[in-house]
Simulated assay, not measured.
Amino acid sequence: MFEELSIKEDRGQVGIGTLIIFIALVLVAAVAAGVLVQTSGLLQSQAESTGEDAQSEVGNQISVVGATGTVSSSSVSQVDLVVKKSAGSDPIDLSDATIEYTSAGASQTLVYDSGNANGNNFATTEISGGSATVLTNTGDRVEITIDTDAAELEGGNGIAEGEEVQLRIVDQSGATTIYGVNVPDSLGDRSYVTV
């Protein structure tokens, strides 16, 4: 009889130990689940933010409608780009944009200046839409002026006949538009050329 009692007592003690271990495991699992839920929420918000940024970089595009070069002593001394925003783009503020000017003899990063264009700055002029810097609607047009005489480091003689320049326009969202300026092989006696 005593043996049976001791066996029952042993079983009771084993049962309490197992219950304590079970409760500890449940508590550890609950804490781990809480950490996983918090981490997944943080990752989801970061993914949404990254997605929005990527969408604005792809969606916000500047379209070059036309480009004209001002001829001065057998080279193009100034380039004027007429730009608009692409359909579906958010408003684009050109005062926050940069233009990376790359040619055979120069590499400059131009920033906006409300005054005149020079070797470090580009200027804008309103054509239609009510603002000289912000493209709100697809019908808005702004002219960007780049002084290529000042931007060219070697000699400051603008872009010579037959040369090419790459303009990389980066707006405030990081979206990039690349435009290649190609000067005709012969400028002749013209004052303006399409580039």
Rank of each mutant, 00 (worst) to 15 (best):
residue 50 T to M: 10
residue 34 G to H: 08
residue 28 V to C: 10
residue 87 A to S: 10
residue 27 L to F: 10
residue 98 T to S: 08
residue 59 G to Y: 08
residue 69 G to Y: 03
residue 58 V to R: 11
residue 52 E to G: 06
residue 19 L to A: 13
residue 22 F to N: 14
residue 57 E to L: 15
residue 92 I to D: 00
residue 81 L to W: 01
residue 38 Q to R: 13
residue 80 D to Q: 08
residue 32 A to W: 07
residue 83 V to D: 00
residue 24 A to P: 06
residue 59 G to T: 11
residue 71 V to H: 03
residue 50 T to N: 10
residue 29 A to R: 09
residue 70 T to H: 08
residue 45 S to P: 05
residue 65 V to C: 04
residue 65 V to Y: 04
residue 103 S to N: 04
residue 45 S to K: 07
residue 28 V to P: 04
residue 19 L to S: 12
residue 75 S to T: 04
residue 89 S to G: 01
residue 78 Q to P: 00
residue 53 D to I: 11
residue 40 S to G: 06
residue 32 A to N: 10
residue 53 D to E: 10
residue 55 Q to A: 15
residue 67 A to E: 01
residue 106 A to N: 03
residue 38 Q to G: 10
residue 105 G to E: 13
residue 89 S to D: 02
residue 55 Q to T: 12
residue 54 A to D: 08
residue 34 G to E: 05
residue 105 G to N: 15
residue 76 V to R: 00
residue 108 Q to P: 02
residue 30 A to T: 14
residue 39 T to M: 14
residue 21 I to P: 07
residue 33 A to H: 10
residue 70 T to G: 07
residue 38 Q to P: 05
residue 25 L to K: 14
residue 105 G to C: 05
residue 61 Q to A: 06
residue 101 Y to N: 00
residue 41 G to V: 07
residue 57 E to C: 11
residue 51 G to W: 01
residue 36 L to M: 14
residue 73 S to A: 11
residue 66 G to I: 04
residue 50 T to I: 09
residue 64 V to R: 03
residue 80 D to A: 07
residue 20 I to V: 15
residue 22 F to L: 14
residue 66 G to P: 01
residue 71 V to N: 03
residue 68 T to K: 12
residue 91 P to F: 00
residue 20 I to Y: 08
residue 53 D to M: 09
residue 33 A to N: 11
residue 76 V to H: 01
residue 24 A to M: 13
residue 60 N to A: 05
residue 32 A to S: 13
residue 95 S to N: 05
residue 73 S to R: 09
residue 33 A to L: 14
residue 37 V to T: 14
residue 92 I to K: 02
residue 54 A to T: 13
residue 93 D to E: 03
residue 24 A to G: 14
residue 85 K to Y: 02
residue 52 E to T: 07
residue 81 L to D: 00
residue 92 I to L: 05
residue 93 D to V: 04
residue 99 I to P: 02
residue 104 A to K: 06
residue 107 S to P: 03
residue 38 Q to T: 12
residue 19 L to D: 12
residue 58 V to L: 13
residue 87 A to I: 06
residue 62 I to F: 08
residue 67 A to K: 05
residue 108 Q to L: 03
residue 107 S to V: 07
residue 93 D to K: 02
residue 56 S to I: 09
residue 46 Q to N: 14
residue 96 D to N: 12
residue 95 S to D: 07
residue 32 A to F: 10
residue 45 S to M: 07
residue 91 P to W: 02
residue 91 P to T: 01
residue 105 G to F: 12
residue 55 Q to L: 13
residue 101 Y to F: 11
residue 83 V to Q: 02
residue 48 E to T: 15
residue 64 V to Y: 04
residue 46 Q to S: 13
residue 32 A to K: 10
residue 20 I to T: 15
residue 47 A to T: 07
residue 63 S to C: 06
residue 84 K to T: 10
residue 83 V to A: 02
residue 46 Q to K: 10
residue 31 V to I: 15
residue 77 S to H: 03
residue 75 S to P: 03
residue 41 G to E: 09
residue 69 G to F: 04
residue 59 G to D: 11
residue 45 S to Q: 09
residue 24 A to Q: 12
residue 39 T to Y: 10
residue 55 Q to S: 15
residue 77 S to T: 05
residue 32 A to G: 08
